[in-house]
Design a protein around this nucleic acid. Structure first.
Lengths: 218, 218
DNA sequence: TTCCCCGGTTCTGTATACAGAATCGGGGCT
DNA sequence: AGCCCCGATTCTGTATACAGAACCGGGGAA
């Protein structure tokens, strides 16, 4: 694997996990030293992260980790809604029902997981669902766009400590989506995705508002 | 302006205009020499083009200009349909009717342009419409995705010598879209965009089929 | 005190040097 | 003749060197 790829993945992981928080200045020399590569591959990694929106190179000389604001989160949610609703329609049209029938059942049983407090397993199930949707559309460029926007919102969501009640509803929303895709019902799949995303947005924005209130005290 | 940016724009322009045809090998040394820059900024340009899908680095050692096939065109159209339909809904919701009211009238008059054979002016009008939609959504990340996918399909369309009849229908389809946005009718805007894109896809695929028949003769 | 100017410093952006991997061609074997 | 192997070559990927631009601090003037 190339050094530039390693640097890219390391930095992307650090940004998504908030080890590099929004606004952190990204000095090429310092990062290159820390990651054990020279500035050349490091710059390639930064350039790619800038194209994908995780790094902001427009302000001043040094790049910084891009901001997570209400405005940016709303923007990415609009983009995600556009992509995921259409992806759900495509998946329903592709009529690959078996995978989503299975997922529907597992989301149905997921309330049990949540009662048992096994939140990690539930997140793994969601990841599996996301992956299934990306595979179902059979469209690399589409899947790449989906992946990028999901990553942005995963970063934002990492602040939001999902409560049990929200996760329970999330499971039921996902079950509905899976059933619609299984049954080839494009319209229902799209509106179920739309409803789910709007609920998720509300949750994240609530957490963001709390953070902002804490960080800018009167 | 940075040398890497100049190289990026030059290469992107060459690829979109078919001066660099699909499949052309992109030797770093040769390109750097031709563009008058060193390999470092040229590599940055190639990396960015690869992220955006205009260059394929997965095959062998040297990068090549990415292919334009029926498969890839269908894929980008699915992605574009997802983005443009949602963008049209957002534009309708934003209720910035004046711009689109004006565009609707100009598309209405555009049949006159086409009768006069002034095709360039008509293409300029379409470009203005695309730009207006990108501005109306007030969402940089969304607009960037739109721009990339439009560029891919502009490249594919460059093969398709649009005939006058198709352009006349295109004008009427655009007028319908603009009116729907002007009136804040989200559902109509979305389906008008969808219908327009499907027609455009059909036209491009027909041209592609002709090309393939010519290039692989019996 | 506050603002502006300016030299010093640090960092980016670019060019170049170098090592290693992928490709190509020829020669030998089957 | 056809295929495979291997050396030569060419190209990429990375490291480093260097020039120039963006920042920082102090000193002077208002």
């Amino acid at each position: 694997m190339r050094a530039s790829d390693r640097a890219y993945e390391a930095l992307r992981g650090d940004i998504l996990a908030w080890r590099l928080r929004p606004g952190t200045p990204l000095s090429e020399i310092e990062l290159a030293e820390r990651l054990g590569v020279s500035r050349t591959p490091l710059r390639a990694a930064l350039a790619r992260l800038a194209v994908e929106g995780f790094v902001d190179t427009t302000r001043g000389r040094t790049a910084i980790v891009s901001d997570v604001s209400e405005h940016s989160v709303r923007g990415y949610f609009e983009l995600r809604e556009a992509l995921e609703t259409h992806a759900a329609k495509l998946a329903a049209r592709r009529r690959d029902g078996a995978v989503f029938a299975d997922l529907a059942e597992r989301f149905d049983r997921a309330t049990g997981l949540l009662d048992a407090g096994d939140i990690d397993s539930y997140y793994a199930l969601i990841a599996e669902f996301d992956q299934a949707l990306a595979v179902a559309i059979e469209n690399p460029a589409f899947a790449a766009s989906l992946d990028a926007v999901r990553a942005h919102l995963a970063r934002a969501r990492r602040m939001a400590a999902d409560n049990a009640e929200r996760l329970r509803r999330s499971a039921s929303e996902h079950r509905l989506i899976c059933e619609a895709i299984r049954d080839g019902d494009e319209a229902l799949a799209a509106s179920a995705v739309s409803a789910h995303l709007r609920h998720a947005l509300t949750t994240i924005l609530a957490t963001l508002a709390v953070r902002d209130r804490q960080e800018t005290p009167a």
